[in-house]
Design a protein around this nucleic acid. Structure first.
Length: 208
DNA sequence: GGCCAGGTGTAAA
DNA sequence: TTTACACATGGC
């Protein structure tokens, strides 16, 4: 069976650095993390553009606007009523801490994030890794699927998270690149319905 | 028309 | 503790 490091190196050699998270500001990163829940990133980009065009990609402006208007702007991401409520909860929490920087410097940040309605383990870990720059491994649907297929590990969120963290240097850059590379692999090759082995950079390491 | 997309909260077994 | 379901738009 392939090792976690071998797969990482093969993905990096093939796809190169992804330099995630794609965002022009830290607040945009946090908002994107909520908007991308169970929706393709393409749809998120449209919503983020809508928010920018209306000048509300900012905690104060977002908190000050009508939730109903927010719903309209983020509609392309689906689940828009829930997500509008979640963005309101996020912007409120950010403002209560005096801004994005202080928000992400809170003690016990992970549990603080999980205490906000609408932020689960993946969203919290994304915010900590790509927003705060702290090393915590992010497990998404691609990671779960690829881990089962490539490493033969079928487990829950925190078991998979620990599986990667045990074999990697505690480095936010490596964690960030690895997660991004798994997403790219998942989109192009390790698909839900069936693997696309043609051109897959880790086919030689995979029991598929 | 069916499947999938960078999940989470809630309720019931 | 596990499983089922609601939440909703858009691309292929």
């Amino acid at each position: 069976m392939a090792s976690v490091m071998e797969v990482y190196e093969a993905l990096m050699d093939h796809f190169g650095p992804q330099e995630w998270w794609p965002a022009e500001s830290t607040f945009e990163m946090l908002v994107g993390a909520i908007l991308t829940q169970n929706v393709s990133w393409r749809n998120v980009e449209v919503a983020l553009e809508n928010l920018k065009n209306h000048g509300v990609l900012d905690p104060e402006r977002m908190q000050g606007m009508e939730q109903r208007e927010l719903e309209i702007l983020i509609r392309p991401t689906g689940f828009y009523r829930q997500k509008a409520e979640r963005l309101k909860a996020l912007s409120q929490a950010v403002l209560e801490q005096g801004g994005v920087v202080s928000f992400l410097k809170q003690e016990d940040l992970r549990n603080k994030l999980l205490g906000i309605k609408g932020i689960g383990p993946e969203t919290a870990d994304s915010m900590i890794l790509y927003g705060a720059g702290e090393p915590t491994f992010v497990v998404d649907a691609y990671t779960t699927r690829i881990t089962a297929r490539v490493f033969g590990v079928e487990a829950d969120y925190h078991t998979i998270k620990a599986f990667f963290e045990e074999d990697l240097p505690r480095d936010p850059v490596i964690y960030g690149e690895y997660h991004a590379l798994l997403v790219v692999l998942g989109k192009r090759h390790c698909k839900k319905s069936k693997p696309v082995c043609e051109g897959c950079p880790i086919c030689h390491l995979c029991p598929c």
